[in-house]
Design a protein around this nucleic acid. Structure first.
Lengths: 126, 126
DNA sequence: TAACTGTTACGATTTCATTCGTAATATACG
DNA sequence: CGTATATTACGAATGAAATCGTAACAGTTA
């Protein structure tokens, strides 16, 4: 059975590249590789290969107009984050969002972040 | 380098078994297999094998006193959930807990859950 | 004790994720 | 044009995850 596109969950390496694409916007393999090289030692062709696989999975789109293809995230950061968090809630938190929030907040969470969350709650209709 | 025990992240299949162990408490392979069979079609030896691997990784402990070994989760549900959520926050949310909470709450979140979260925030010192 | 049953142990297979070397190709430049 | 360079394409190697068949073993019972 063909896998539903929306069900595609990026692997860890793929998520690393998506983070770069969300931050930089559309970019060539070279640019992406340079960015990822700042924190990891990964070969150029490794990055290329992962991007090609991501393209097959429709995790990225690419513009082949020029010699150096330009890659871009297929889905927004927000969309992907929502899907990742829903997946975790269902698989590790018995479907309970509040349980997840309880675990997410701990002593290391800054007062500023707590405030942001309070404001979010205040803005809800419910 | 030896992997730090606390850094061991359960795989998806392992998490399924951990959920059962947290819910049932210590159990034999047979019991665990029966439970998992309620929702999935998985062979008995597959469950056994995964438990053995989890034992090697110290994700579970086991009592070998009796013929049928009794398995139990090595870490609490809360501990494991915290570690999973921290991992996700760092890899997909740029370290921002509030961003994660914003993505976690959506139209499908019940009023009751929202209330639980409000109470959690109220109970914080910050 | 012998064979039946239920359990663990072991190893093979398959699939996926990751890595990277090398070949093929396209572009630029002398 | 033809050589150098940058890029993409391909495929192999490795390792982890998941599955399950079969062997080995222990305990039970006829």
């Amino acid at each position: 059975m063909a896998r539903d596109k929306s069900a595609v969950k990026p692997t860890e390496a793929e998520l690393t590249l998506l983070n770069i694409l969300w931050q930089m916007g559309p970019a060539t393999v070279r640019q992406i590789h340079e960015s990822v090289s700042a924190t990891q030692k990964t070969g150029y062709t490794t990055v290329l290969k992962i991007l090609q696989i991501m393209h097959e999975k429709s995790l990225v789109i690419r513009d082949e107009t020029n010699r150096a293809h330009v890659y871009a995230a297929a889905n927004s950061e927000m969309h992907t984050q929502s899907s990742l968090i829903k997946d975790l809630i269902s698989k590790a938190f018995g479907g309970s969002t509040s349980k997840l929030v309880m675990r997410a907040i701990d002593e290391s969470t800054s007062a500023e972040e707590i405030n942001d969350i309070r404001q979010l709650l205040n803005s809800l209709e419910k």
